[in-house]
Amino acid sequence: MHVEVTKHDFEPKIVAFVCTWCTYAGADLAGTSRMQYPPNVRVLKFPCTGRIDPVFILRAFQKGADGVLVSGCHPGDCHYMAGNFHARRRFAAFRALLDFVGVDLNRLQFSWVSAAEGGKWVDVVTELTERVRTMGPMPEFKELEHEEQWSGAINTPELKEAYDSIG
């Protein structure tokens, strides 16, 4: 498969949290099959999607990710029996939270890619990369990191007002 290499103005940073048994192996299969996909993705391997703490996703956004992919075994096929079910429930709630906070959910994708689905891995990664490319960078969380961390001191009028309103 030959893919035309085109230069883009914006290369999004995509971080993929994957389980070792299905999606990591699926990505390996894409490699052994010499399929092609955009090189924007960085893969972090976990034993199971059940291990993935939502905090990791937030931290990834903060550290410069423009899109995050979480992918594991298909429901019912978990190597650890039920880890992906726990992950599914956890992320359903987490998505709602992100939505509430105002994160465009198009930047965060969950998918099931089995060890036999090299092609699906390519599709998922390509789709997410291209989608995020059109959306542009995601600066909000990055900026958050640069802001001074709150020391606990009520040192601004806004904070003071908020604090008083609770009291």
């Binding site: 990505a27 490699g31 052994t32 010499r34 399929m35 092609q36 996909y37 090189p39 390519v122």
Partner: peptide, 14 residues
Amino acid sequence: REHCSWVHEDRDMA
């Protein structure tokens, strides 16, 4: 290899 050299063609980006 599987996650990089085999799946990308652009030498700089890979």
